[in-house]
């Protein structure tokens, strides 16, 4: 049985859409007066890239796939076996880290990040986790300070520091 919808083709279709959007936004780039007489202006390169993107994406969709190497069912089984749940948890923690970093402050937030991501990966030696995350982050922060790089304290602590 030949499968026509392979993963490469799906990516090809997605990339085709991306290239079209890219071309559309590339066309919106404002041009200044001195670009009018120019052969090659701020839009030219995006046009070139976008059009070649469309060609390559179409080629990827059309080119016959190798029936033995592109076994979609096999690929799907392999993908299903991966541990997606902890991965999503890890991604969520990274997202939260980015959102709360400036509010909680570098040292506190980073320690929390190390602690939580260890926990999500299945580590259960709680004391070791606390000690390690706090000490690693603090040592790192000390080194940063020694190099003269300024780390702003978190907004959370600002309130009671002023008092």
């Amino acid at each position: 049985m030949t499968v026509y919808i392979t993963y490469s083709r799906v990516i090809g279709v997605l990339f085709l859409c991306l290239s079209c959007c890219y071309l559309y936004f590339g066309h919106q780039i404002p041009l200044d007066f001195w670009s009018e007489g120019e052969v090659f202006n701020a839009r030219s390169m995006p046009y070139l890239i976008g059009i070649s993107g469309i060609f390559v994406a179409i080629a990827l969709i059309l080119v016959p796939t190798h029936p033995t190497t592109t076994n979609v069912h096999q690929q799907w089984r392999e993908l299903k076996q991966l541990s997606w749940l902890p991965t999503m948890g890890f991604a969520l923690i990274i997202a939260l880290y980015g959102l709360s970093l400036e509010y909680l402050g570098f040292i506190f937030c980073s320690s929390l990040f190390l602690f939580c991501s260890s926990a999500i990966l299945g580590e259960r030696r709680w004391l070791l986790m606390v000690v390690l995350s706090v000490s690693i982050v603090s040592a790192f922060a000390l080194m940063i300070g020694w190099l003269g790089i300024y780390l702003a304290p978190g907004d959370l602590w600002m309130g009671w520091l002023d008092v």
Binding site: I11, L18, I29, P30, L31, I49, V56, A57
Partner: peptide, 22 residues
Amino acid sequence: LMTILGLMLATVGTDLTAGVQR
């Protein structure tokens, strides 16, 4: 295809020649 993706990402930001934002 991946090279073209890289080229696309490189055009984000202020254009170094004309100074317009892309």
